[in-house]
Write a protein that binds this DNA or RNA. Structure first.
Length: 426
RNA sequence: GUGGCCGUAGCUCAGCUGGUUAGAGCGCCAGGUUGUGGUCCUGGAAGUCGGGGGUUCGAGUCCCCUCGGCCACCCCA
């Protein structure tokens, strides 16, 4: 093992190469979003627990890292519920709603926000899943129309396109379609949440698996049969829009108008975009109220690289009056993995000054500053026994040019026109 | 949160059924060699065998606990 000293479980250090790549990807995403008139905001990493916990964050609420109150008496331990009053955010949507409620008067009527920031969930880590990870969110607050959804999807598709990520598909659905579907099949209201979770696993456990889980949850056989036949119909439609709609119960089909409007909108706005209407898409967050969407990529079977939807009820919980809201979140850690190991290197010349140990520090840094002044990034590197190996390592870091300095190298002029000197820069 | 696999020098790994001062390659350092530099030779530094308990005359090797990584589930980005 590398070291016994390690970062906390599920959290990572980023070395220069990783960091450069991540920042490069982030810059592209930010530009793609900013191009649609969105502006970046930032909120504290901590929010009041009561806000994090009452916002229908689904299972994520169980994964909150809680922060102990200050000044607790260690000899008089309180139950966890009373010992903590703040928690690390598990997503960026809840803090955004809070920010909006706090600053509504200072914000435009329709507010478009970018958020690029870490969130925390106390999950069991594995590939593409961490306890601290970065999300890239765009949200539209104050827009009730489907233009919000169309724009969000277009912007997200743009970001992926700019990054050269191929093969991503956006799946679209609407919570009300799901609800109508379950109603029509006779699923009792109190069984619907569990039923949704089961349906969500369709692509993983298959029809039989879903049916078995529904039965296990106490859904009657007749109801399961009806639901399964709907799901079979959807599956047989194989993505064909008309066939998919025809497979739905009438009332559910009627509820699909918004989804269809969004799909049509995206198709008109961005003809190449891969958008698929999928009545079995569920999504875990409880706060979604209408259209929902998710980005899938073959590299993450079963998982998504992003998702979002409309959450018209949440801002009202904080602000008192309802404000329509809709957002899309890209899972940065997963997106980064899909981006070609393209080098996001400095545009400036990267120069190494390989020097012997007998050059005095002032002279060394004077040379360094002279090169900096004419547009290079310059690193001082002590000369070692095997220079060739040193140079190879530098090249891997992006230092393509180098010059050698020893005590006999004449000091640079401290003034006057500076050109990139040490003409034998190699 | 549940289950499985794994954890030996900076890196990649070897250490058979428990037995003397834990090894190799690469890298690193020093000296020499070489057509002033990715060669070769010699020597050297470097390991709490993830951590803690236990079994044993004796544990890197067995048992328990713990930390961390990976995988599946759960769920999600």
């Amino acid at each position: 093992m590398a070291s016994t000293v390690q970062p906390p479980r599920g959290m990572r250090d980023f070395l220069p190469d990783d960091k450069a790549r991540r920042e490069g990807v982030l810059a592209v995403i930010r530009q793609a979003f900013a191009a649609y008139g969105y502006r970046e905001i930032e909120t504290p990493v901590l929010e009041e627990l009561s806000r994090l916990e009452s916002s229908q964050g689904g299972d994520n609420e169980k994964l909150i890292f809680r922060v102990l109150r200050r000044g607790l008496d260690p000899h008089d331990p309180l139950p966890p519920a009373k010992a903590a009053d703040l928690g690390l955010r598990y997503d960026l949507t809840v803090p955004l709603a809070r920010l909006y409620a706090t600053h509504r008067g200072e914000l435009p009527e329709v507010f478009r926000a970018i958020q690029v920031a870490p969130v925390w969930r106390a999950e069991r880590p594995q590939r593409g899943r961490f306890r601290q990870f970065t999300q890239c969110d765009i949200d539209v607050l104050g827009e009730a129309g489907t233009v919000a959804e169309v724009e969000l999807i277009a912007a997200t598709a743009d970001a992926l396109e700019r990054l050269g990520v191929q093969g991503a598909t956006v799946r679209l659905n609407d919570r009300s379609v799901l609800a109508a579907m379950l109603d029509a099949c006779g699923v009792a209201a109190d069984q619907q949440p569990a039923a949704l979770v089961s349906i969500d696993k369709l692509d993983k456990v298959g029809l039989d698996g879903v049916a078995a889980e529904l039965s296990a949850n106490g859904v009657g056989a007749g109801v399961v049969d009806r639901l399964v036949s709907v799901l079979v119909g959807v599956a047989d439609a194989a993505g064909d829009l008309e066939a998919t709609l025809a497979a739905l119960p009438t009332r559910a089909g009627e509820r699909a108008v918004r989804v269809l409007a969004i799909r049509d909108g995206v198709t008109v706005a961005k003809p190449g975009a891969a958008v698929v209407v999928d009545p079995t898409l569920v999504r875990g967050m409880g706060y979604y109220t209408g259209p929902i969407f998710e980005v899938h990529h073959p590299a993450f079977r079963g998982g998504s690289i992003g998702g979002g939807g409309r959450y018209d009820g949440m801002v009202g919980r904080f602000a008192g009056t309802d404000v329509p809201a809709c957002g899309f979140s890209l899972g940065f850690e997963r997106v980064v993995e899909l981006v070609d190991a393209a080098r996001f290197r400095s545009a400036r010349r990267q120069v190494a000054l390989v020097h012997t140990g007998d050059v005095d520090p002032g002279t060394l840094v004077a040379w360094q500053r002279r090169l900096i002044a004419v547009g290079a990034d310059v690193r001082l590197v002590p000369r070692k026994r095997n220079v060739a190996r040193t140079l190879e390592a530098l090249r891997r870091e992006g230092f393509e040019e180098w010059a050698e300095l020893d005590a006999r190298t004449r000091p640079p002029a401290t003034s006057g026109p500076a050109g990139l000197d040490l003409r034998d820069l190699r």
